[in-house]
Design a protein around this nucleic acid. Sequence first.
DNA 1: GATGGCTGCCC
DNA 2: ATTCTGC
DNA 3: GCAGAATGGGCAGCCATC
Length: 596
Amino acid sequence: MPPNHNQRRAESAMVDRDTDTVGQGALIEFAAVAEWIEAATSRSAKIALLSRYFAQLQDDPLYYAVHYFAGQGFPQRERRLAPIGELTLVTALSVLSGIEPAKLNAHLKRLGDLAEVAALVLVRQSEPILTLEDVAIGLEQLAKTQGRRKLSWVIRLLEPATSLEAKYLTRLLLGDLQIGLEEAMIEAAVAQMTAQPLEQIRWGYTLLGDLGKTALLARHNQLTQARMQLFQPLKFMLASTVQDPAQVIQQLPQGFAVETKYDGIRAQAHIAPAGKPTNWHPETVFAGIRVALFSRTAADISLSFPDLIAPLASLAPHALVTGETAGLILDGEIVPCQNDQILPVAALQPRLDPESPSADRIASVPVAFVVYDVLYKDGAVLLNHPYSERRRVLESLLLETPEVRLAAAQILFDLESLEQRFFQARAQGQEGLMVKALNSCYRPGRRSHEWLKIKRAIITLDVVVTAAEITPETAPWFSNYAVAIRTSDGDPTLLQIGKVAVGLSQPELETLSDWIQRYTIEEFAEGMVRLVEPQIVLEITVEQLKPSQRYKSGYDLHDARIVRIRRDKSVNDIDTLDSLLYLVEQTQNWWDSSEG
DNA sequence: GATGGCTGCCC
DNA sequence: ATTCTGC
DNA sequence: GCAGAATGGGCAGCCATC
């Protein structure tokens, strides 16, 4: 559709038509605005249109519209609904349109977008009748429903939809609007609509964790009443990556603290008096103190870690005053550990069960919460306090226990000691270090340069390519390589060790594909899979070597990526089973000696 | 009861 | 998580 | 430089089906 046409529709969505329906939030109007935004390129024009659209909506529809434009069915911090999957939607579309799923999948392949498929096959001639509130009700039901029964709600939601409505309903259900609209633009639109400073909107959103609610408060000039909401997770501050300690000195000349880089699950802990018993889970309350743990995507993972509830709640008597603002928000990492040793992060996987884990499972994978930041304490929002101050608060309130630990941190001044510390970290089997500017504030949701992770892969191997495969995504280039090592210096027998598929640039990919053609010994799957002469040597990095029955070497690669093509090396120079075993042993020693 | 497709959610 | 891209 | 979009590995749960 041409932008002009969309703009007319979008604008007409905002002029008075029938006083009964103005501002009620028809889904078709939302869709028209979304269409226009998708086609537009000017950032300011998108914001202006969005702000005018918001302005004419009544309160409830505004609340929904703000969330839906953010691509989310619910407030960001109440992730009650995980988006539904492609299969469910294809099935629903099939039921509604009477078209075979296979045909729909063919459409999907051609159009590359399920929402376009929905728009194509759901062609209702009648008037659009859906409202944003209808959508909210449907999503609410979906959130309460498990498994296959979700399908019937998807069908009920899509059934009355016109083509354009179906397109955006589909995208909402998939959890992503895909119209090139950043959250920051929605914030700007709210600011424009309410004629309030953008900074004020942002701060309100940070405190409330709910952009829709922020918009409503802003509209009614009540933003100053916004308070930090305990048990509504803040976004996490993220770090950017550097490879070399020298880059740290360059980027953080004002002084920095160095922390151990804990490899686990990032989590935010909220701890506060439970108050009146309501609908939260009894297992998350200990001695009148409620505890919640949130993952990086704001999922509530408290029930996966019942063994952390009591230890975290026990911080309260030392830390909390009584009263309405009493509470604590901590940022840290959940790590698997056993007898004081911190284990590889892979050990945590079984604990991420959505239901409560069994006692067996808890016992077999003990965990600790390593705390490295404090964001809120008893009414004081600490986000805008510098790192050094937050660290001081943290050290004053945490008692070390096996389950709750304080992240190891030290202040370093020069490159030499930083390099030494980095070397030490790697000798202990950690992939690197965290470095944080002493004067940095906690900026939720930002990947800032005030937090850096120095990171380098632990294990490097030279391997030879023995087979290659073209995947649909990378056709016509060979992108998946089966690789092998030698048995020993004296024995050139090749042993398969796994597959590697990432790390090459496009030109390298093309070069390598050429070579694969040239060295092909045998073809399978119409040439998509080839056995090749063992001529091509790759340098790869591996996070971990895992014992495995699958390959003759007895090991499998974990998180392998290609560093470079070693034109200078031949199959005679690659790693051997002996050197591999040495690496495995060394890694083992690292884990054994590391105390975290 | 085992298997396999699909989903979801960590990294 | 990483990588690529568009602004 | 940033945020978003697209990508990958790994594993466990759910459900339908064999």
